[in-house]
Design a protein around this nucleic acid. Structure first.
Length: 153
DNA sequence: GCCAACGTTGGC
DNA sequence: GCCAACGTTGGC
């Protein structure tokens, strides 16, 4: 199973918002790198939810892909800030997935903490900090899951 | 197809 | 609020 990190500013939409709503369509990704990664997602894949743009950026919990990639409807909506005049129904430019809340970490895994870890030396989120959707290897996913649990040292 | 200018993200 | 990194746009 694949795993990803989805970044968002908590002021915009936080993990607590997702917990409240249950699930959400991850609309509005308008970056090709992020889009390409999102398109690899399959239902059931693991998503680490990352809060960015705050004093202590961190992975704060997990979600699951609850709906496989499909064309982002906002690209066709002229009233949406995500409207894209070059997108057509036949050839969508932008894709989205739906994610559902899974868990809130007992101990958030901070960016600071991840930087010092040998196991995460190559993790994409550290190498390409501007990417809002990045991939996580199984080993990296295990490390993060462990670090987020209450028993973590 | 290249590259300069510009815009955006995100850490600090 | 600043700045580095890097993605995107548009002129040529």
């Amino acid at each position: 199973m694949a795993a990803f990190i989805f970044k968002n500013e908590p002021d915009d939409y936080s993990l607590q918002d997702l917990k409240r709503d249950g699930s959400v369509a991850w609309n509005g990704v308008r970056n090709y790198g992020a889009r390409n990664r999102m398109k690899q997602a399959e239902e059931g894949d693991l998503v680490f939810y990352y809060h960015s743009g705050i004093s202590k950026p961190a992975i704060v919990g997990t979600a699951r892909i609850s709906k496989a990639p499909y064309p982002d409807p906002t690209q066709y909506d002229e009233d949406s800030p995500y409207f894209d005049a070059k997108a057509t129904e036949d050839e969508p430019r932008w894709w989205t997935v739906e994610i559902k809340f899974e868990s809130e970490f007992d101990s958030p895994v901070t960016l600071d903490a991840m930087k010092d870890v040998e196991e995460l030396a190559d993790i994409e989120v550290l190498r390409q900090k501007r990417l809002s959707v990045s991939v996580v290897t199984p080993d990296e996913a295990n490390w993060i899951t462990n670090a987020g649990s209450a028993d973590a040292p």
